[in-house]
Design a binder for these strands. Structure first.
Lengths: 234, 234
DNA sequence: CGACAGTTTGAGAAAGTTCAAACTAGGTGG
DNA sequence: CCACCTAGTTTGAACTTTCTCAAACTGTCG
């Protein structure tokens, strides 16, 4: 199969009531009647890695729910350096700024092919007025985002590089004990270290057996070793 | 005047409708009728430096508004080290976790004598059901907190120590061009560096004339010099 | 077979940490 | 009023971590 040049592929209007991950998403609590209030289409769109869903400063026109894939939220400093402030996975929501009429704070860039639902601000506004069932979900989302931001700071921006990487792996490890490491550049930007230093640290981990590469970019993680590196008591 | 041993002084029940900083606070948009829905007292309490308003993991029973003073939100790592994740000033709100039924994420500790309004969760819940005017304020608060958290990460946890300190001073500088630096330990915990290194960096700034101590802990800041240190282009 | 983007490695320089010691300054008690 | 305590700050020197810049190495794609 040839690689296409399409960055975004429209996948149709979402059928929210029959959503496969509905218990994970913003509309979890809505009733049949509530859904009838939605008159605008909620598009389901697929994006290729590297695409920017929105950029910092853009007028916020929609809230996004990530159905699958991986998206990074990055913030740029005046001097051009970038910092990844959050990583979004299945069920995560972003662009909540839209609900308070503010421009997007970050650029949202796809790391792994992403399927997203695009919910226009008007839909949120309409529902906000009519049904209280959206509120508690919205508040929950704000809370989750804030908690993630705070944990990010204490876990991934505190301590030496090996501790940060170990905590990162423990956080992102899947139930089967494996984790994906994207490019060293992005890894550096999430841990607040240079690309080279990220590479060295991953190298150390491989040599010490804390992680083993079982497929390109995918690693089997040794929970024991990682947690003791993370706590710096070994 | 002898130093008292009172940590918290009850200042009476707040008269929210006549609040002096009402345009800053959560209840900004409420109407006369809305206020009548508040049946529980909203206490106004004064706390001395060092007091913990709440600790991480506590069941959240109230949302707080800071009327004056300075409060730090700290998060502790398993290994005991601490990180200051936010600094709260006049008009700031904290303990929003209470509105989503979650325990407090951080410990809130007073740095400069603080006058706070304590709003019981029940009041928020009651108002949330009855009036839509609170929602937009709540969402705005969540947004502000999240924005502050993200900026904290990119500005105060990225780059070399002098850059971080410079950005911190520029952020916290008051309109008159002065800023307060609390203890070196807290400064270190906000910039993610050691107490000693914080001390050295402040020392450098003093020697270079970027800041001048005009009273204990209060500094006159040279905006020019600071912004060029912050951008690392000097 | 290049070209190219990302990764790894090396070596020297810079930044930050550690631990210990000296130095404040405010507060207490004789 | 002064000596003395204490908590916080500053400083020094050796050490560790991280950065920088440059070069060599991978793998993929046309």
């Amino acid at each position: 199969m040839k690689k296409g040049h399409i960055e975004a592929a429209w996948k149709g209007s979402a059928q929210c009531e029959r959503c496969g991950i509905r218990d994970l998403v913003l509309f979890a609590d809505l009733t049949k009647a509530d859904f009838n209030l939605i008159h605008l289409p909620i598009d389901e769109i697929e994006f290729e890695p590297g695409t920017a869903l929105h950029s910092a400063g853009d007028k916020a026109a929609a809230v996004y729910t990530l159905r699958s894939g991986l998206v990074k939220l990055v913030q740029y400093l005046p001097d051009g350096s970038q910092r990844i402030v959050r990583l979004l996975r299945r069920g995560d929501i972003f662009g909540l700024e839209a609900t308070v009429g503010q421009p997007y704070e970050h650029s949202a860039i796809v790391l792994q092919r992403a399927l997203v639902c695009r919910i226009p601000t008007q839909v949120i506004e309409r529902l906000s007025c009519e049904t209280p069932r959206l509120h508690s979900q919205l508040m929950r989302r704000w809370h989750a985002a804030l908690k993630q931001a705070d944990d990010w700071l204490t876990e991934l921006s505190t301590g030496k590089a090996p501790q940060r990487l170990a905590r990162f792996l423990l956080q992102t490890m899947e139930p089967d004990g494996t984790a994906v490491l994207f490019t060293r550049e992005d890894l550096g930007a999430t841990l607040g270290i240079t690309t080279e230093h990220a590479s060295r640290t991953v190298g150390e981990f491989k040599r010490s057996g804390a992680i083993i590469e079982i497929a390109p970019k995918r690693f089997r993680c040794d929970r024991e070793k990682l947690s003791c590196i993370a706590a710096a008591d070994c």
